[in-house]
Design a protein around this nucleic acid. Structure first.
Lengths: 145, 145
DNA sequence: TTGGGTCACTTGCAAAATGATAGTGACTGT
DNA sequence: ACAGTCACTATCATTTTGCAAGTGACCCAA
């Protein structure tokens, strides 16, 4: 057989996708960030079936990206809030958004502005060590033993 | 109803996910980048069912992320190569990988090294305007009319 | 030249996930 | 007492995924 046949166990991308690798999960995170933290808000915003939304919310909570918080006992009202892990995922959504705008951007799209400068945010993935955008320098992979 | 109920049509994240919003598609892109460009290589590397792989490859080709290239007529041999759009998606996979390493990183994981410095790449999403990591500055959303 | 072996798939069918629709229970406000 | 909201669950049809087996083009060795 080849050099390495199946390294899914050692691939950090796979590890990430195990937790959020579907469309609804990401859109839920996006909406929570937009301030749509309640079940009904998410349901109407996304146009998702209620059973599916329930399952996605449970899965995201189990995966540690969101936490359910009862903010009113009577009437019983819950909100879903991002955890640290969930908040850390948001930049990835911005990067996906930038890609979507570039390659599937017909029509007018919403966007993020820097609150101070007022300029449209342009998300790019860089290597924190060099500051260079990923793809601008040659890379090499290293596999564990 | 609320401020804006359903902006999926104007959301660039959704636009992006329309094209690659599933696990297998992303893993296929990752593997192609690793040099596994042929059907059999992808199938054994991913452990994916052949019919599913076929469908994913067609979908990715239709979405413009990869292109099928017959590099040998006899015997008939094909390879799948990244297009510009596909290559532009790779940094997102690196960002997902960094997240996966941080929050689901048990055991030894593979990683990318800068070919020149030899240091492990640390992918971060920044705003190209300010250079500041996304999340470190307050943002505001702007919706189209 | 027959007989395996590889590559790149397709076909058929079972299992799982998704989605539409209806309904439930706790409440609130009139 | 009665309509209305919120946060769901239950049921069932549809869709997608996954497994196993098979197919066609070709190559190489006996």
């Amino acid at each position: 057989m080849g050099t390495q046949e199946n390294n899914s166990g050692t691939c950090p991308v796979d590890r990430g996708l195990m937790r959020v690798g579907d469309r609804w999960s990401m859109l839920v995170l996006r909406d929570i960030e937009r301030g749509l933290t309640r079940y009904e808000q998410l349901r109407t915003s996304l146009g998702i079936a209620p059973n599916i939304l329930s399952r996605r919310l449970s899965a995201l909570a189990e995966a540690g990206l969101i936490a359910k918080n009862r903010y009113s006992a009577r009437p019983p009202r819950d909100e879903y809030l991002l955890t640290d892990a969930g908040r850390d995922f948001l930049p990835i959504l911005m990067a996906i958004g930038a890609w979507g705008r570039k390659y599937n951007g017909g029509g007018a799209l919403s966007r993020h502005l820097d609150a101070e400068t007022g300029e449209a945010v342009r998300p790019v993935v860089v290597d924190a060590n060099t500051g260079a955008p990923i793809g601008s320098r040659p890379l090499r992979m290293e596999y564990p033993d």
